[in-house]
Nucleic acid binder design. Structure first.
Length: 804
RNA sequence: GGGCGGUUAGCUCAGUCGGGAGAGCGCCUGCCUUACAAGCAGGAGGUCGCGUGUUCGAGCCACGCACCGCCCACCA
């Protein structure tokens, strides 16, 4: 065995071996209690990023612990077709060739996507394996598998028949590049420098004017009213009268509505229902017409008269010129504000009125909210539970149709009269008029519509399968904050609607790992760090450890040091194993604690095991791995291993057997976090019954905790000795450990006795002062006062031990 | 504008119940000690973001402020 642990080769070897030996397998017929973890399926063309790496580390740690604890674990792998994300990637690829998707046509485009997937898809699952994630890879699913497509169609038909899916014309977020509607959740916002233009609208009766402010002069052509706040005294006299819209010279009413901000601009708002969400609502509530002057391509349309075909920028210029010519341009001022962009292509979103398919949320969210309220599903941490609840409560109806080409096509056919027939397979005739001329809807579904089914569609739903009976409902889902509204809440209401039960009881929202400088990790910002690089440099074990260690709060900075610490832990473990293995030739593991240090380490192993179980159970991975680090370095190596060395070399059979047994327990506790190095060491131990990955989790018996204090006395004595060179009085057994661990160190007294005496004297003085303070002894809780007395006694004892 | 998280050693972060300011890394000193120099032993280094309050006592509780990050939001 080398004196320095290198994960190279070791990790890949065990990963192959575990998978080939079928040790990741979940079995529907296994009688043991099931534990199911629904892991987010990555985008099929995606690469492993730091968020995935953290997510896998956390989930796999739980999975491995549960597996050792005897559960029938299902850790489900798979891919998401990632509708618009994949579509966008291919469309960009085409653009590089000077082509658009319309040049290819739908069929050829979709074939192109499949080619793309064959070339670039699926690679991320190799990276999942490389980090040691023990998913049951035989069960890989894809949201475009035939069976999955059937599940999606079944879901759609189900909702349609219940009346939850309907078609309506509304203002939507329109991406002019992709030429599709998007949901609010598919946008991002960016501050841009714009101009706010103040425009005079003359009153129709010639009696003056009203000035409005706008950032989009071109939309003036579609104005149908001017709105003011009913309480705005400046304009009350105008309400009910008419103004003339510039350029088109149309007479429109002045209306009053409380949604107008008095403070903004002039307090008067031009109302353009065709091109602005707020105006759309105002128009609808006031019965105003909806005019449209911008088309799906983002250009001015034929209703824009002489401006037809212009870009909005050019149209803005033409309108501004008209205003100047007519002396209706009051002023322009610089204005910085947020605009909505398509999160995929960064094109500015155009609010447009469009006929789309919607899913009613009212009935679906009610039981889901109830489940959250009753904690049948609990988000961790608590603050995320509140966020999830609030955002579901306020979720508007869901626009589920998209006009892109990659995705699940709606299971819906239309006849020439426009009747829609919804069916799981192609119908012969229109359900309403019997027409046989049916054309399938060209729309595809929002990609999250299929994601919502993941926890049960992967198990064979809507068939009644053994997998579903065994593994649904599941237990856990780990993910990041960004997709609570997109995915988590939708899985919950879909599971309740279709399966009658929530898909999992707990959702862990893990930390976001930012770049070392605190900015978001992002490829486009150049701040991204590749987790695979960390794995190559430090190993998967160290990377897993490091990610869990650093992820303690909502947002954390990437810390290379945390991963290096993991590497040190692996190396320390490797070396203490060498010590024990070299010194225990021929021995077999057995817990025969004959001496104080042995009872003590067994007590520490038990105590730490309980801590780790509690912390992992509460999803506090950062503190769990910190505990394991302390146990390994401080307790196991610095004290226990040092203390038993003389007895090991002297051939003490109890010490040897117990050392092997204690090492086994240590390896078991560390395996969920650092599976590879622990399995490698395990394979060198005598008498092993199975691979460590499926070895039984220790039964923690608290038999020796009483000995912990004796060892603590030794540790106190050691500290004093180090500070002052003067040992405390100890019993025989304690003295033996003291000699073994502390004596060999080349300590120098250095006259530190005086410094130590001064330190202790100060402590004694502080404690005496507190205890003589009546308001302390009188008002502080009795146990606090008692603890202070004990401290005082202890300091006095130590002072006595120093002599005078 | 709203919500959440954060601000503690040079860096990354712990700090449970209000009662001794901590770890890892980095730095300095001494050691290649038959498991480990990715090691061991020792050391320096802090106005706990700022202010007010509660308390015998505040890193911790309350209120206010500042700054950083993330998410949400229809001020055109």
């Amino acid at each position: 065995m080398e004196s320095r642990y290198s994960p190279d080769g070791v990790e890949e070897r065990w990963q192959r071996s575990w998978e080939e030996e079928g040790l990741y397998a979940a079995d529907a017929d296994d009688p043991r209690e099931a534990f199911t973890i629904a892991h987010p399926p990555p985008n099929v063309t995606g690469d492993l990023h730091m968020g995935h790496a953290l997510q896998l580390s956390l989930a796999d740690t739980i999975v491995r612990m549960k597996r050792m604890q005897g559960y029938n674990v299902l850790f489900q792998p798979g891919f998401d077709h990632a509708g618009i994300a994949t579509h966008n990637a291919v469309e960009r690829h085409l653009a590089a060739e000077g082509l658009t998707r319309w040049d290819l046509g739908r069929e050829a485009f979709v074939e192109r996507v499949w080619e793309w997937l064959r070339e670039y898809g699926g690679k991320i699952m190799l990276q999942f394996r490389r980090i040691g994630a023990s998913l049951d890879y035989r069960r890989e699913r894809f949201t475009m598998d035939d069976a999955y497509v059937r599940a999606v169609n079944h879901f759609f038909v189900h909702l349609y028949r219940k009346g939850y899916i309907y078609r309506a014309s509304r203002i939507v977020n329109w991406c002019p590049f992709h030429r599709t509607a998007l949901s609010d959740l598919e946008l991002e916002h960016e501050d841009v420098d714009d101009a706010l233009t103040y425009v005079r609208y003359p009153l129709a009766d010639g009696d003056g004017h009203v000035t409005i402010a706008t950032v989009r002069p071109a939309t003036i052509l579609a104005d149908v009213a001017v709105a003011v706040h009913p309480a705005d005294e400046r304009y009350q006299h105008l309400v009910g009268r008419e103004v003339v819209v510039p350029v088109v010279e149309r007479r429109v009413p002045v209306i009053a509505d409380e949604r107008v901000e008095i403070e903004f601009g002039t307090g008067a708002l031009k109302v353009t229902p065709g091109h602005d969400p707020l105006d759309y609502e105002l128009g609808r509530d006031h019965g105003l017409p909806e005019l449209t002057v911008i088309g799906p391509d983002g250009l001015m349309n034929s209703d824009a008269g002489p401006l037809a075909g212009l870009t909005q920028q050019d149209a803005d210029e033409r309108v501004l010129q008209w205003l100047r010519d007519h002396d209706q341009l009051e002023r322009r001022e610089p204005y910085r504000h947020a605009v909505a962009l398509c999160e995929r292509c960064k094109t500015r979103i155009e609010p447009l009125i469009s006929l789309q398919w919607w899913c009613r949320m009212e009935e679906l969210k009610r039981p889901a909210l109830q489940a959250l309220r009753e904690r049948r599903v609990t988000y961790h941490p608590e603050s995320q539970h509140r966020f999830a609840f609030d955002s579901l409560e306020h979720a508007p109806d869901w626009n589920i149709s998209r006009q892109i080409w990659w995705g699940h096509q709606l299971p819906l056919w239309e006849c020439p009269d426009g009747h829609a027939t919804v069916a799981e397979t192609e119908p012969d005739s229109c359900a309403e008029c019997g027409s046989r001329e049916l054309v399938r809807s060209q729309d595809v579904l929002d990609t999250w519509f299929s994601s919502a089914l993941w926890p049960f569609a992967t198990l064979g739903w809507p068939e009644e399968t053994a997998d579903l009976r065994t593994f649904y409902p599941g237990d856990l889902n780990t993910t990041d904050r960004g997709i609570i509204r997109l995915w988590e809440n939708r899985m919950i209401f879909s599971g309740l609607e279709l399966m009658g039960e929530v898909p999992f009881s707990d959702v862990v929202i893990h930390a976001t790992v930012n770049a070392p400088d605190g900015r978001r990790m992002s490829k486009s910002l150049g701040t991204g760090l590749d987790p695979m690089e960390q794995i190559e440099r430090h190993g998967a074990d160290a990377t897993r450890y490091g990610l869990m260690k650093m992820a303690s709060t909502q947002d954390v900075r990437f810390s290379a040091g945390a991963i290096e610490e993991g590497g040190k832990l692996a190396n320390k473990l490797w070396n203490v194993s060498r010590l024990i293995l070299q010194a225990t030739e021929g021995a077999r593991p057995a817990e025969r604690p004959a001496a104080l240090e042995e009872r003590w380490i067994l007590a520490r192993l038990t105590a730490t095991q309980r801590d780790v179980e509690r912390l992992v159970g509460g999803f506090d991975f950062s503190h769990a791995v910190a505990e394991l680090y302390r146990l390994t370095f401080d307790d196991f190596c610095d004290w226990y291993a040092e203390a038993i060395k003389p007895r090991l070399y002297a051939g003490d059979e109890d010490a040897r057997a117990t050392a092997l047994a204690a090492l086994e327990r240590l390896l078991k506790l560390l395996h969920p976090v650092m599976p590879h190095v622990t399995e490698e060491i395990w394979s060198n131990l005598p008498d092993r019954q199975s691979r460590l990955i499926v070895a039984a989790w220790p039964q923690a018996e608290d038999r020796y905790s009483g000995d912990a204090t004796a060892l603590e006395r030794v540790q106190d004595a050691a500290e004093m000795f180090r500070r002052s060179g003067v040992p405390m009085n100890l019993g025989d057994e304690e003295r033996r450990i003291f000699e073994a661990v502390v004596r060999p160190e080349k300590m120098r007294a250095n006259g530190n006795v005086e410094l130590e005496r001064a330190r202790l004297a100060k402590e004694v003085e502080r404690a005496e002062r507190m205890l003589s303070n009546k308001s302390f002894t009188g008002r502080a809780p009795a146990d606090v006062v008692a603890a202070e007395r004990e401290k005082l006694e202890r300091y006095r004892r130590q002072l006595d031990a120093l002599g005078s």
